[in-house]
Design a protein around this nucleic acid. Structure first.
Lengths: 160, 160
DNA sequence: ATTGATGCAAAAAATTTGCATCTGG
DNA sequence: CCAGATGCAAATTTTTTGCATCAAT
């Protein structure tokens, strides 16, 4: 585990302690796995990652879902609805918020951050009498790689 | 049916004809119902609306889903993921695009349109090599009505 | 010791699909 | 007529829950 994910794990631990939640073996494994990748992952993906790191793990998918929920509430991970299949998660702690562009054909996901938009989201919510808690901007379209016929994501998706 | 929804129905009909899709009784009923309201509705809501207008209708929920899919592809309706329960639909034909602010506690949904953001979405997608097809910005938070303790949506949701 | 967390299996919820039948063009 | 649309039921898929047991504090 690199120094960065060690720090992140510590932050999660501290949060659990503060919130009166227990720090258990399964939670340790789930958090370690979640912070070990910088890709998007489903709950099932995460379980596979856990099993790769520790073939003898007893962690169950239900526990993964339960823990992801807690992590999401604590702003350590964020879920993304992709309209097709399971929700994708990514760890967010220590990262700047970003929005997503999703290819409807190949599933490729790109990220971007736009400070102007962030400010306007905040303002829009405020103007309507809302306290913004979280926000999700997804742009769906098609990527040029796919249109040009040399998109590696497309083949990967067909195989999967 | 007012003149506006008649026009909208005609546009849908024309689209179906152009696309080589058949104009059937169930589709007529589904489209009429979808354009008869300016609220968000689930597939099931729409079926109830159809049954209210015509108690003897034989339209089936599966057909509602199938037709909503066609309508969405034709940009006549738009689906909204609300993280809790079913997808909400609204007819969009002839309406300016808008984004949504959703109260996580009471379910209230407000809409807004921000031209600057629209332009930046478009640009973000282009810069990343995507052709934007659709986009969905959802801001989740809490509304002041609820915080102030006089939110009608909250009670409505508890009852429902 | 207590109370929360976990594994497991089973339920739940929402949407999709297979198929025989019907129907619009 | 014939391809596409529909009703119906059954399947699918993903996530959640009940409950007995286990373990952290």
């Amino acid at each position: 585990m690199d120094k960065r994910s060690r720090n992140e794990t510590e932050a999660v631990k501290a949060h659990f302690r503060r919130a009166g939640l227990r720090w258990t073996g399964p939670r340790q494994e789930i958090v370690d796995a979640a912070f070990s990748t910088h890709e998007h992952f489903t709950a099932e993906d995460l379980l596979h990652m856990i099993r790769e790191r520790n073939p003898d793990t007893g962690v169950h998918l239900a526990t993964v879902y339960r823990t992801l929920q807690v992590l999401e509430e604590g702003d350590f991970v964020e879920g993304l609805d992709v309209d097709k299949g399971s929700r994708l998660f990514e760890h967010t702690f220590g990262h700047e918020h970003h929005d997503h562009v999703i290819c409807e054909d190949c599933g490729r996901i790109c990220e971007f951050h736009d400070e102007t938009m962030e400010a306007r989201k905040e303002a829009a919510a405020r103007d309507l009498g809302f306290a913004m808690r979280r926000h999700s901007l997804r742009i769906f379209g098609t990527c040029v790689e796919l249109a040009a016929g040399h998109c590696s994501h497309y083949k990967a998706r067909r195989r999967g």
